[in-house]
Design a protein around this nucleic acid. Sequence first.
DNA 1: GCTATACTTCGTTACGTGACGAATTAAGGA
DNA 2: TCCTTAATTCGTCACGTAACGAAGTATAGC
Lengths: 120, 120
Amino acid sequence: MKDFITIAKAVSDETRARILMFLGKGELCVCQIVDVLGLAPSTVSKHMSILAQTGLVEFRKDGRWRYYRLAGPEASPFIRQALEWVNTALEGSPVVQEDTRQLKKVLKKDVKALCERYKC
Amino acid sequence: MKDFITIAKAVSDETRARILMFLGKGELCVCQIVDVLGLAPSTVSKHMSILAQTGLVEFRKDGRWRYYRLAGPEASPFIRQALEWVNTALEGSPVVQEDTRQLKKVLKKDVKALCERYKC
DNA sequence: GCTATACTTCGTTACGTGACGAATTAAGGA
DNA sequence: TCCTTAATTCGTCACGTAACGAAGTATAGC
């Protein structure tokens, strides 16, 4: 029960649902996610740690970067079911479409260029 | 998106998830649900109105009683998918099993007898 | 080692939400 | 008509949570 509630709460935040949708297109580092969402890095980091703790996403470290991706086929069936539900419910949603557009822009940028935000 | 978040939030409360599980056994009036959960009628009423507003449950009025049931086949596909997800995730859960036991006791009682609570 | 930088953790603030009892509404029955 | 009662609505309180910036951690490059 506890696991279910944790996953359901993780999914029921709009920002996290958006992240799950555009993360379906491929793995991203935190600074790319920050750029798509337009939120503070600390906020995004918190969201990613919540998603990772539930098992909905996984990550790999590469130097200073941390790349997040959706949980793979080895994840528990009901994690998979949750991801499928989110996907079914949200594909075609205007918010998700706009995020997809934004993601394309972000992917064109050099990863290094993204980090100018930290120089402020 | 908004609909999805509303439904996900509705489902991500433990009390409401429990209600959805034992409501699968058949329709119940509010006072029966109150008796299974052991919560205040006002609290249960609020939960039911949240569930009804999302479309996860429906109700019919019969005199002073209001009978709630799970959404039927005519509900939107992704409401159905949500209910299936909850069911898959929670069937066999100890909390749900205990509620099922409690429900059996409640169903043995006369509906009138349940309402003694209001006389206190 | 030092600096820069990608990310996380911490502390604060504002807002959302679940619990309850009291008051209100609606429907039977005397 | 008045009373009882099933259920809801309202007001309040405590707690959870999402946002941010500041501070801390870890890794790459000089």
